[in-house]
């Protein structure tokens, strides 16, 4: 199945708003490394809670390794970072859904998409807490902003 226009619109909208929202933070000489399995402290059916490490790193410079979920365009300044390569496409499949532990990445400037099979490292400022993109309604909990990335 690949006939779901809604999600595609969502992403287009996000791409549009992300362009204006990127900031350029002052980058510390060193940044703290953060792993996917360190994001949440308590996990339950009734909700997750951020780990102490995430709370401590809010607003600070972090590095995270993961996989880049394919954005709509090869050149993009917004994408979703996932723990494992996305084998489904929530942007295009009607019954696919994002994993719980995604991180939204906003780049300082557009970069070309890395192969889905390639591990990347993202560096930028960690933003913590639920935030709803006003243009699209896309809700994210964790963001790395003013970011750049490179293949490992």
């Amino acid at each position: 199945m690949s006939d779901l226009p809604f999600n595609r619109r969502t992403v287009l909208g996000l791409l549009g708003t992300a362009i204006g929202a990127v900031s350029t933070p002052a980058r510390a000489a060193s940044s703290a490394s953060l792993d996917f399995d360190e994001l949440y402290g308590k996990v339950s059916v009734l909700g997750l809670s951020f780990s102490d490490k995430v709370k401590a790193l809010a607003g600070k410079d972090v590095r995270m390794r993961g996989y880049m979920a394919p954005p709509l365009k090869a050149e993009a300044d917004f994408f979703v970072l996932t723990e494992i390569p996305m084998s489904i496409c929530p942007f295009c499949s009607s019954d696919a859904d994002w994993p719980d532990n995604i991180v939204v990445v906003r780049l300082r400037s557009a970069q070309t998409f890395e192969q889905a099979n390639a591990l990347i490292e993202v560096r930028g400022t960690l933003e913590v807490g639920s935030w709803t993109d006003p243009a699209t309604g896309f809700v994210s909990l964790l963001r790395i902003v003013g970011a750049d990335f490179h293949a490992i």
Partner: peptide
Amino acid sequence: FEPAVQNEKKEYVANEA
């Protein structure tokens, strides 16, 4: 099993894992 992952052309390619 996750047989395929998406590439930059929005095509599914074999998961190299």
